[in-house]
């Protein structure tokens, strides 16, 4: 599904990712953990195609295609979804309007007919239930006046509607109380499938109690310094990132 090789990225001339490798197969859920500032969001943004990140070497292949040469909207239409760490507010633009445009753009891209207003409404209502959101959120401006938790839920809701092949969730758990965390995790779990891969970016182990990953990677110094199964996340929780830092550069498991 996603194959990242020797990815090096600089921001304003500063090296952030220094030769990162990652291979995510279809249907797999990978967790990427690491301390603040280790480059997790940078990785997520580079996958999604945000401006301001310079890829100085390496490659990112998505379904066998060169992702880095694609415009952000085409990545999205091909099935790359980013749940933002900080979802932006867009005053005056209804949540439902943005989603409808986005979904229909993807459908056109895939040669499918656009959904009409009625079918679309049916679809979004069903997906709202998944994250236990009220219908009024559809008609409110995108993220405007949403609480932190509502914003994160809205991201998962959008993911549910757009049905991506690869979802990158950037700290979707941060700022959530335990109930909201369970709802979000439930939504993500419901969307797990053979054809859908998920990258969970987090720096808490907590989320992984609810969304059990196939692989866990630790990002430090701009590279994956350790990989393992869900036990690795538990070890990290107990021993802290310092434990990894001191052994950074060691071969990854």
């Amino acid at each position: 599904m996603l194959k990242i090789s020797d990815l090096k990225v600089t921001v304003d001339g500063k090296a952030i990712l220094n030769g990162l490798d990652l291979d995510v197969g279809p249907g797999e859920v990978h967790a990427i953990m690491g301390p603040n500032g280790s480059g997790k969001s940078t990785l997520a943004n580079v996958i999604a195609g945000r401006d301001g990140y310079e890829v100085t070497s390496g490659s990112v292949a998505f379904m066998g295609n060169d992702l880095l040469s694609m415009a952000p909207e085409n990545r999205a239409r091909e099935g790359v979804f980013l749940a933002f760490q900080y979802p932006v507010e867009i005053p005056g633009v209804a949540n439902i309007a943005l989603l409808k445009e986005g979904l229909n753009a993807a459908r056109r891209h895939r040669g499918e007919p656009e959904l009409d207003a009625l079918d679309f409404l049916k679809l979004v209502r069903e997906k709202l239930r998944l994250v236990e959101m009220k219908e009024e959120f559809l008609y409110r401006s995108v993220n405007e006046g949403f609480s932190g938790g509502e914003k994160k839920r809205n991201e998962i809701f959008q993911m549910a509607v757009l049905e991506p092949r690869l979802a990158v969730l950037d700290e979707t758990d941060s700022g959530l109380d335990i109930d909201a965390l369970k709802i979000v995790a439930g939504g993500v779990n419901a969307l797990r499938s053979e054809e859908r891969s998920v990258i969970l970016v987090t720096h808490y182990q907590r989320l992984l109690d609810y969304i059990v990953p196939d692989r866990v990677h630790v990002l430090a110094g701009g590279r994956i310094v350790r990989s393992g199964d869900k036990q690795l996340a538990r070890d990290l929780e107990e021993r802290g990132y310092g434990w990894i830092d001191s052994s950074a550069g060691a071969a990854t498991a």
Partner: peptide
């Protein structure tokens, strides 16, 4: 970027 990430052209 947020809109484009959802599939909208610039």
């Amino acid at each position: 970027f947020y809109c484009r990430q959802r599939g909208l052209s610039e």
